[in-house]
Simulated assay, not measured.
Amino acid sequence: MTAHTPARPRKKSRRGKFLLITVIVLGLLLVAADFALAAAGEYQIAQRMREKLQLDEDPSVRINGFPFMLQAVRGDYTHVAIDASGVPIKNEAQGVDLRDLDIHADLRHTRVELSDLLAGNVSKATIDQVEGSVKIKSLDLNRLASQVTPFDKLSIDPDNRVTTTTTTTTAPGTPPAPQTTAAIKLSGQTNVAGKDVKLTAYGQVSLAGGAIQITVDEVELDDMSLKNIVPTLRQALAVKIDPGKLPFGAVPTAVRVEPGAFVLSGIITDVPLVQR
């Protein structure tokens, strides 16, 4: 007969599992609390930005970086991203009438105490740097160009036939100068004598005085027997669009073309989170 060997006690194993589960639960609670505090801070900033940017609805606000609590203790939120879509801007005195803008702002180092942020008291809050941009989409371009000649389904794209090269020499470590021109391709259709005509136009968009000016160099038609209307189309597409100031009062210093839109951008430093 063989002697029966008693099973070893598993108290230590059970205790280890209990401690592990406790640590996991506490970690999840801390993460949940961190996200809840961040959401509360985002809500307060969204409320202030709705007033500052004169929006009809609260913008989307994201306080990036984890953990939020560490940033809150320091009173320094390294990156806050703000987005708003379908924003109208109308200034009859300046002839500005845009109806479908997208606004984006990257706030670098927003400085405000957590207690003030959660209470909505951000009158003393400051931002080291704001990178603001406004996106002008094809809907507004189509409407503005149609004031001269009726266009339909007018689209915006980069002119990929053109390779942009930088000829300005900068010192090592110096960021490149902002791009103030970009090649464009506009596609759509118009109506001539009751006949729909498809067109493709190539040119550039230039930034001047905070506005963008479209210049068309070449127009292609699907029916070249109507080439006599090309000068009229070029004139109609030579639209100037002035969206005014960028978020937080930044002045546009660069322009680029992306599918469906022109994007104006600029940077401003040392600004208050809200108007004082």
Rank of each mutant, 00 (worst) to 15 (best):
E113V: 10
D159N: 15
L101F: 08
E258H: 05
D223I: 06
S85Q: 09
Q147C: 02
F68E: 00
G27F: 13
D270Q: 15
I89H: 07
P231D: 03
Q147I: 05
R50K: 13
V205D: 02
T170Y: 09
A171Y: 04
I127Q: 14
T22A: 10
V112K: 14
F68Q: 00
I127K: 14
E42T: 02
F151M: 06
V205F: 01
K11R: 15
A46W: 10
T168F: 15
V134C: 02
P67L: 02
K153F: 12
L70E: 05
I241H: 04
P243K: 11
F66Y: 07
R50G: 13
D152A: 13
G249K: 10
T126A: 15
E258D: 15
L70A: 06
G27L: 04
V255Y: 01
A201I: 09
F18P: 03
A254W: 08
D196C: 02
D140H: 02
V112L: 07
S206D: 00
T149D: 01
A32R: 10
L141Y: 04
A3S: 13
A177D: 06
K185H: 14
P259L: 02
K11G: 14
L28K: 00
A33T: 03
V255M: 12
L101S: 08
V263A: 01
S206A: 13
L117D: 04
K185P: 02
L154T: 08
T166V: 14
L144N: 04
V112M: 07
G249A: 05
L154P: 09
L19W: 15
V255T: 08
L139H: 13
K245E: 07
T78M: 00
E57F: 04
E131G: 04
S133P: 05
R50E: 10
V274Y: 03
K17E: 08
N191R: 07
A39V: 01
E131V: 05
T163N: 14
D159P: 12
I136N: 03
F18Q: 12
I127N: 13
E131W: 08
R8E: 09
S265C: 07
R62A: 15
A208P: 00
K240G: 03
G41E: 05
P252A: 12
A145G: 00
Q275H: 01
L199A: 11
K245G: 02
P9W: 05
V23L: 14
G173W: 10
Q179H: 08
S138V: 01
T164E: 06
L114Y: 14
G244W: 01
D102S: 12
F68H: 01
K52R: 11
T180V: 12
G173Q: 10
R50F: 11
A93T: 00
E218N: 07
D157K: 09
Y77L: 05
F35V: 14
I184V: 06
L264H: 11
G188K: 03
L29Q: 11
L55C: 00
L221H: 08
L273M: 07
F248V: 09
V31S: 05
L141G: 02
P9N: 13
S60Q: 07
A182E: 13
T180H: 04
T126Q: 15
D100W: 13
D159T: 03
N228K: 04
L226C: 00
T269R: 10
G266F: 07
P6K: 11
K90D: 12
T181V: 15
Q275R: 12
Q213L: 09
A33D: 08
